[in-house]
């Protein structure tokens, strides 16, 4: 199973409500996967770099982190701790140094970019959303996932969304059958998945294609050629939002569009609280067809 939701705002009026709307959408999909839940939300652009990190022992790990990073970088760093996660505001150009620091300290990096923050944990959507205060977050677009694990461990790192490059994230309903071969090919190109999870391979695949110069549509098109298995993917980039389903298309998907937003749900139930849904255009995305929106 697994449940996916996504919301891409075409106008600014709903921006303050983005987290609230996404939370309702994600909670409505709880029946589709109780193992872990996560959300990627694209908020206001920061001046420098945003990095979301995670620790199972946040009190110890995040104590003194701001001072240590200030000293390391010789520039002001802000650390906003949210439950097991912390969002860092870092100076531009410091990513490699900070990544090395996190690796040394054994701190997990959930994602990084100018506008994206990622929060994911083991547990039900309502609990995960409450722990991270998702309802209070605003932004331009966001993607959520609730997982029923099938092929790798139920852990924080096995939760979706997966982010494998700046401001990029991917969620998946399905299972891939050629991920080990693709994993080796991607590793050779420098995109090394951090987990044994099949979905992370798909995220790395999209990142590698975007890095090679493909646009979001071309990268999604590539999944139909190069990935084998069942999938409905929803992908976020700094300015974009994309959807693709495999040619068999047995994993459910429904979309809604109004003048204000584009929404994705594994089921129509996810849309029930969206404003203006009664007059939205509702359709099922076609198999082996790429849909994407960019602002």
């Amino acid at each position: 199973m697994c449940g996916i939701v996504g919301l891409f705002l075409k106008k600014d009026d709903l921006r303050p409500q983005l987290g609230d709307l996404l939370t309702d959408m994600l909670i409505s999909m709880t029946d589709r996967g109780p193992d872990s839940a996560g959300i990627a939300i694209y908020g206001d652009d920061s001046q420098g770099l945003k990095m979301t990190i995670q620790s199972d022992t946040p009190d110890e790990t995040f104590a003194g982190l701001e001072d240590n990073l200030n000293a390391l970088l010789g520039a002001p760093v802000q650390v906003r701790v949210v439950d097991t996660h912390a969002v860092l505001a870092l100076p531009e150009g410091s990513e490699a140094e900070v990544r090395a620091y996190m690796a040394e300290k054994g701190i997990r990096i959930m994602g990084a970019g100018q506008s994206m923050e990622i929060f994911k944990e083991v547990g039900l959507p309502k609990d995960v959303a409450a722990r991270f205060g998702i309802r209070q977050m605003g932004g331009s677009h966001g993607i959520g996932h609730t997982r029923m694990a099938t092929e790798s461990a139920v852990t924080t790192l096995g939760a979706h969304p997966f982010s494998t490059d700046g401001d990029q994230c991917l969620v998946h309903n399905g299972s891939l059958s050629n991920h080990n071969r693709v994993r080796r090919e991607l590793a050779r190109k420098g995109f090394v998945p951090q987990t044994q999870n099949d979905t992370e391979v798909a995220a790395c695949y999209i990142s590698s294609r975007l890095a090679e110069g493909a646009n979001l549509g071309e990268a999604l098109e590539g999944t139909l050629e190069d990935l084998d298995g069942f999938f409905t993917f929803v992908v976020g980039t700094k300015n974009g939002f994309g959807v693709v389903r495999d040619p068999i298309a047995c994993k459910p998907a429904v979309m809604a569009e109004t003048d204000s937003y584009v929404a994705f749900g594994s089921e129509y139930r996810a849309f029930a609280n969206l404003p203006g849904i009664e007059n939205a255009r509702i359709w099922e995305p076609e198999p082996a067809t790429v849909y994407f929106w960019e602002r």
């Binding site: 298309a249 047995c250 459910p252 429904v254 509702i282 359709w283 099922e284």
Partner: peptide, 8 residues
């Protein structure tokens, strides 16, 4: 009878 679309 369904006025809209039907899924799978």
């Amino acid at each position: 009878t369904v006025e809209g679309d039907a899924s799978q």
